[in-house]
Design a binder for these strands. Sequence first.
DNA 1: GGGCTGAATGTTATATTATAACGTCCGGTT
DNA 2: AACCGGACGTTATAATATAACATTCAGCCC
Lengths: 154, 154
Amino acid sequence: MNFPSPQHDHHNCITQALGAAEEECRRRGARLTDIRRRVLELVWRSHAPIGAYALLQALGKAAPPTVYRALDFLLAHGLIHRIEKLNAYVGCAHPGHDQAGQFLLCRQCGSAAELNDAVIEAAVRDAARRHGFELATLTVEAEGLCPACRGESP
Amino acid sequence: MNFPSPQHDHHNCITQALGAAEEECRRRGARLTDIRRRVLELVWRSHAPIGAYALLQALGKAAPPTVYRALDFLLAHGLIHRIEKLNAYVGCAHPGHDQAGQFLLCRQCGSAAELNDAVIEAAVRDAARRHGFELATLTVEAEGLCPACRGESP
DNA sequence: GGGCTGAATGTTATATTATAACGTCCGGTT
DNA sequence: AACCGGACGTTATAATATAACATTCAGCCC
């Protein structure tokens, strides 16, 4: 997934993501409850990865465990990813593909682009194999400047 | 750097790391003060990445800012790495090379192996370029089972 | 429908990780 | 000696996350 262009129809992109999530949950026999759906929508509304307490505030009258439980559910079903560097969460661009998360994170505007690069994964998988390491999950987080911010402040 | 073999001389490996750190600080005109050296030694003593509050406890009578300031210094000078997934710190195997951190993290025993794989870095750099992204720092954290733990519980 | 059951949520408290703000000390320079 | 800036001490608090237990709700069986 590329960095979002400024003029893209984000409302539509949220709708699509929620639809895909419904679908994926049906497929997996998982219950996308009201709270879970609301959290997922809030995550998608934000272009940048968003933190648990920001979600909490947006939800209104909820306590931390409510948000964390929803996030756990969404993570478990591959509907969102956690960005470790930021302690924040972002919608998964391709639910159901169960990919490892690879991200380009913009220092300036905070936006994130999800990669799904087979070459990167293969390179890590290969290195792991050479070390006799059994790879389970892979986190790749690259920090820098997105195309837009690069243009602004050269 | 490979996973440490059970019988390796860890005392020696700490000594070497501290020596290399002294050297690197001299080269950079940075002051490796007593506290900083003690924190670095504690980090190296632990085979697994170690958290700030564990270091704090090991130090004895210190307050959080003391440890965090030492960690900041050590990070800034490339003497340790931070493992984002674990909120923990580990000695840098090659100070002075200013490499990105690439790690294999064992789920079971908690040990970490630092990679310095040019292929992985090139793959990410390439993907970033294709997205018009200016890469600054790269974090790669692979989770799974190290050779030893894989053998134990098949 | 009534009652059962397990999952989901509510609620309170607390753990864990990290930083702000400000004062003091100490080492090097002039 | 006087200064200066970096390092450290100290107190308080912010930000992130989870434990533990009570309550409610959805689906199912009868």
